[in-house]
Design a protein around this nucleic acid. Structure first.
Lengths: 201, 201, 201, 201
DNA sequence: AATGAATGAGGGTTCATTCAT
DNA sequence: TATGAATGAACCCTCATTCAT
């Protein structure tokens, strides 16, 4: 009805093209950040791999860090949702923990670059990683406290840092080379440690 | 017999001055790396904080990374020795693990910047951090396998990554702000998790 | 047929601007190298004289030496072509040598900076100059051996080095200040020496 | 007679030591300049090869260029004297030219580094080389004009530049690798060219 | 006279970012 | 919207030179 063609439902060709360009920059950025970390990558290289001109990058993102943050935020959200979904409706604590571990391991397997981005060792990526870890920590705490299973003598905060550190390290290590262990070994080990860590309270 | 009072080992004034300058550069580097990571720091700033001219840095270190590696290597060695000494002569496994955790926590308390350097999140520092973690992992595995306590169903490699990740994360988090938990909470939680993690085998 | 007037070969405005900048850098480089040699010149100064920012230099050339080599290579090619053209179709040896000398002298007159670049005394320019001299030597040897006039008792290699050295020195000396001798004096002297040098065989 | 021990005939131990240090710096400088040119060498490396401390260099020479100039000046003087001695008392022009060429070639053979320093391709060494070449040119002109043999139609200045260029190039080329030609080939070729170049006047 | 630690200007080079087209 | 040439600050590093010992 409107003279202008850009409704929510009918993006113009220009808008579609813009979105496509943005998407290609995101993909290129994710690949490169996962491989080389925030510092190892230049905005030129991202644009180049995306097949656009250097300046185009800045039409879509304020700067390199913003892209990185955006990717990490979304990765965190996805991971969070996966973990939530995987544990939803499970009442037994052991089963919950196992499901949680399995979901994380499977996510690491499917989305290796996301894991490298989130938990791989780059500092500023870690400025983003910090958020991720906090989110993950929050999730863990929630999982546990919902069922009131924090063991006596353990500090919740310390415990969640410990579990998060364990998770992050294990999946990052595994994502580097999945032949290092089987999916089952990871899940089993992660589950076992957590179970026993909380049982004794 | 000699006219000069110098022994073979007596450093000249120049050598002493050189060593002092080197030491100031190391201190400055450690502080800055701990605060901002390898990338956040320039050789100029290190020299500046050490109170020497920019070029002086290069009379003592090949480059920034070399200084960082040197600091990290020494920190690793110190930490390793601490852990070794703390557990030497202890036979009971629970006691060993507790002693190990206590030693780590105390080291983190005394040498906050070293912990930030070793376990804080910088990639290239992590190129050194990787060594540290491997060293630590090796130590942990040794502690456990000496007593034959690897639990059934756990992969040694996975388990040591998990424990290392837990340790690294917890102490780095705590070193950022020690008011986050008490020394005892840390030791207790770390010990408990490990103990139970290995008991179930 | 096309809406745009551009043919396949038509450069975009950007490409034209780029080429213009490159050309200004080349000109600036040539002037400065001729005046001060490779070492006496910085990439900053070249950029400055070209009226562009320092970093722009590196968008067009890998480094100072590459620009220098490029200039020298082209100068060599031009000179070579001149000499070839000047002697083509001349059968009489004396006439060939005179034509050769005349072409060199005229080139030196028209393109003083090229001569300074090629034969002026800079070592790394001489890493390029060496090629030039070899090219020139090759040319001279060819000129002579085509007619079978290498004199008995003379080694070809030595002779061509001698002639090349003579040529290079004379034109470089003259290009510094053309009032030092007339065009005819140069041609006459160079011709006379070579002629007699090869006649006696 | 004097209270002070330092007569011309009896240098103190200190003075002798100083002279020895200076001499070692000269030797080191000559070797390095011949190998790498003025720019390829640092004052530190010269001092190092001479076995003295870096600062010592500046107790003996104002700077790198001064040492280079001094070496070149002396080399020029030696070469000049050789050429003078070799041609002294020879009346026949052909014999003089041959003797001149032979002396140069023999000098080049005995003192390769000096030749590399004087005629090798370094610009600032050439700021020194220019003097050398002028000296050599002067010598040549003298040789010739003494006997009144400048050929008609040849400009003296041009001719001497030509001969100097020839000499310099040939011996530098030969000094790089003496297997390139025999001593006799060099002498023969150089002589022949000059002879014929001047005969025809 | 000799030492050698220190200086600091200055060169080469990169790269995040802008802007005219 | 996209382009890509250009910018210029900032980094790393070298090295001629000085000076307290």
């Amino acid at each position: 009805m409107s003279v202008s063609p850009d409704h929510d439902v009918a993006p113009t060709a220009a808008a579609r093209s813009r979105a496509a360009t943005r998407e290609r920059l995101r993909r290129a950025g994710l690949e490169l950040f996962a491989e080389q970390g925030l510092h190892g990558v230049t905005s030129h290289r991202i644009a180049q791999r995306a097949g656009v001109a250097a300046g185009t990058f800045y039409l879509h993102f304020k700067d390199k860090r913003e892209l990185c943050r955006e990717l990490a935020r979304e990765a965190t959200a996805q991971l969070s949702e996966r973990l939530r979904a995987a544990t939803a409706g499970i009442d037994d604590e052991a089963a919950r923990i196992r499901a949680h571990a399995a979901a994380l391991v499977d996510f690491a397997h499917e989305r290796r670059e996301l894991i490298a981005l989130l938990f791989g060792g780059d500092a500023e990526a870690a400025s983003v990683g910090a958020d991720v870890l906090d989110t993950l920590a929050g999730h863990i705490v929630r999982v546990r406290t919902e069922r009131g299973r924090i063991p006596a003598g353990s500090d919740v905060a310390v415990l969640s840092q410990a579990v998060v550190g364990m998770y992050a390290r294990v999946v990052a290590w595994w994502a580097e080379d999945p032949r290092r262990a089987t999916r089952e070994q990871l899940i089993e080990t992660l589950t076992r440690i957590q179970l026993s860590g909380t049982r004794s309270g």
